[in-house]
């Protein structure tokens, strides 16, 4: 069944593209972003196993592994949980974020070593990296279209691919008088944002997010298996590599987006400076619930 679906997928996409081609030339910025959003959120339940590689200005790399759970509820709210698996001392450290239907984002942190408590955390804006990475919480939950103003800019061709480019302003800003916060480069063939340039107040690119290894996962929905964020100012990079992705409600039950679930599965480790034993770690990794 699944194989058959994937077989017809290219045909469906080609047909959709043919239908859309006529009017694309006239799409506005918000229309493009609507289309983009619609395609990325076709399936609301995602479980990912990620490797997060932090590269510093000297080229040293730190690799962390994490599990990412997200689900879009019927009311449009989004729940997200990112739990770190390795290195062992940070196992269980979690970021719990929720964007409600109104677009309000809240986030909480769980540090097992601090005991069973969730710590309220400011999710920050699009430029604030979370937990030492260069990605923001917003980049995980996605942009809320109503909070921004999208202005289509000139189309362009990058590496033999036709691209839309859309400048993003804060809602209420006057594009004629202010500089854009960022610019999305959207592939015209699959409406996927493969590159976002983040600008400072002077219009200089300070960070650049790129997506690679794009895979069509369902119908016109595409996902990138590799995301790279370059911070040009701080001169470091963060690479998120998706090692495994599953679209299944079963993998992301509602109850796991809570402190209780975290406290139960990632308990505070005893005081001391010894590495937790491997077996203890695996016994405490919550796998049985996935």
């Amino acid at each position: 069944m699944k194989a058959g679906r994937y077989f017809i997928l290219p045909w469906l996409l080609a047909a959709a593209a043919a239908v859309a081609t006529e009017s694309r030339e006239n799409w506005s910025g918000p229309q493009i972003m609507q289309e983009v959003h619609a395609r990325q959120h076709l399936y609301p339940y995602i479980y990912e196993e990620q490797s997060i590689v932090l590269v510093d200005r000297n080229g040293f790399r730190d690799t962390r592994t994490a599990r990412r759970y997200s689900r879009i509820e019927a009311d449009g709210s989004i729940q997200l949980l990112l739990v770190f698996e390795t290195p062992i001392p940070v196992k269980g450290v979690a970021l719990l974020a929720r964007r409600d239907a109104t677009g309000m984002v809240t986030s909480q942190l769980y540090l097992p070593a601090l005991g069973q408590q969730l710590i309220a955390s400011d999710p920050g804006d699009h430029g604030s990296g979370f937990m030492g990475t260069d990605f923001s919480v917003e980049s995980l939950t996605g942009e809320l279209l109503s909070e921004y103003l999208y202005v289509r800019s000139d189309d362009l061709e990058l590496e033999n691919q036709a691209y839309f480019s859309v400048d993003v302003y804060r809602a209420g800003d006057n594009p004629a008088k202010t500089r854009p916060l960022r610019r999305h480069f959207i592939r015209q063939d699959n409406l996927f944002i493969t590159r976002s340039d983040h600008f400072d107040a002077r219009g200089e690119v300070v960070r650049r997010q790129r997506s690679y290894d794009l895979k069509v996962v369902d119908g016109s929905m595409w996902h990138a298996n590799l995301m790279l964020m370059d911070d040009y100012r701080e001169q470091h990079q963060t690479l998120i590599k998706v090692d495994r992705r599953i679209f299944s409600r079963d993998y992301v039950p509602t109850e796991m987006f809570s402190g209780a679930w975290l406290f139960e599965h990632f308990q505070a480790q005893p005081a001391g400076d010894a590495e937790p034993p491997e077996d203890a770690a695996s016994a405490n990794n919550g796998d049985q619930n996935l």
């Binding site: 932090l54 510093d56 770190f84 001392p89 940070v90 540090l111 097992p112 937990m131 030492g132 005893p270």
Partner: peptide
């Protein structure tokens, strides 16, 4: 000072790489 190795490691996650260079 934090008293456990785990807590230290977990706190360190909140620093940007350049902060501790």
């Amino acid at each position: 000072l934090p008293k456990t190795r785990q807590l230290i490691a977990q706190y360190l996650m909140f620093f940007q790489r350049g902060d501790l260079d």
